[in-house]
């Protein structure tokens, strides 16, 4: 029993220590932002690795999620004779919830884990130490552009996800199940609000982008510099970001909608 309490206290302490270090790191990353904005080639390079390389998985998943929504939505709505509103259902589910959340989960798995592994390996192979000895701050040079790229990419990826999902819903609902095409799109236009729905969705995805990239770069930078440490950090990135996304999604939804 005593051991249990002791263990609990210990892991609690470790947790708060790590949380503290993560915040200090975030401050340090932020301090590097102004000078980094002038070095756009670095940011573009990272936008490619973090964002562009995630586009394919976002496109494919978005399309499938949209098709499933079309199918499920149709089966539910047709019982009420309301299949005309399929477009509204698909688009609101995507823009408000599934777009930001699923895109962020995929982003954590694809880009977040890659960021952690890359930074962790740079630490393990002393590349970060070598930079320090060359009088170059590794946090500003390595972490800041990656953080910025994640922050920019996430809302764009979520938007792509939602757009492709709506097309997927159209493909199943209109193309295969015979919902009226005009109704699908015009009902959607009439009911989706720019501020209430789209903007709030975008805010969600920005928050998710910051949190996932923050967790990813922190785990990489804080990793124990061995191959085992890096692989554990990579796993932690995916687990912690997924939990953070789902938890924050609930909080944000409760506040915004």
């Amino acid at each position: 029993m005593l051991n249990f309490i002791q263990g609990l206290g210990h892991s609690g302490l470790t947790f708060f220590q790590r949380l503290g270090r993560a915040h200090i790191l975030l401050g340090h990353i932020m301090a590097g932002l102004p000078s980094m904005l002038l070095r756009w080639p670095l940011i573009i390079q990272q936008l490619y690795y973090v964002g562009v390389l995630s586009v394919l998985i976002i496109l494919v998943s978005g399309f499938f999620v949209g098709m499933v929504l079309g199918l499920q939505g149709y089966n539910i709505l047709v019982d009420f004779g309301a299949e005309e509103t399929l477009g509204v259902m698909v688009s609101l589910s995507l823009v408000r919830e599934l777009g930001p959340v699923v895109a962020a989960l995929l982003f954590a798995g694809r880009a977040g884990s890659a960021l952690t592994a890359e930074i962790g390996l740079m630490k393990a192979t002393e590349q970060l130490s070598a930079m320090e000895m060359m009088a170059i701050d590794p946090i500003r040079r390595v972490l800041t552009p990656r953080f910025l790229a994640g922050f920019i990419s996430m809302p764009l990826l979520a938007a792509i996800f939602s757009a492709v999902g709506i097309i997927g819903g159209d493909f199943v609902g209109v193309g295969l199940l015979g919902v009226d095409e005009g109704a699908y799109w015009s009902q959607m236009q009439a009911s989706v609000d720019l501020y209430d729905d789209i903007l709030n969705g975008v805010i969600k995805s920005i928050v998710f982008g910051v949190v996932v990239t923050w967790i990813a770069v922190f785990e990489g930078y804080d990793a124990i510099p061995t191959s085992e440490g890096v692989s554990r950090a990579t796993t932690r990135t995916v687990v912690h970001s997924s939990l953070a996304i789902l938890g924050l999604d609930f909080i944000l939804t409760a506040i915004m909608f």
Binding site: L121, M122, T125, E126, Q127, S129, A130, M133
Partner: peptide, 11 residues
Amino acid sequence: GMLFQNGALLT
């Protein structure tokens, strides 16, 4: 200048 044991080149 410092030379790390494995070179520590940026990969």
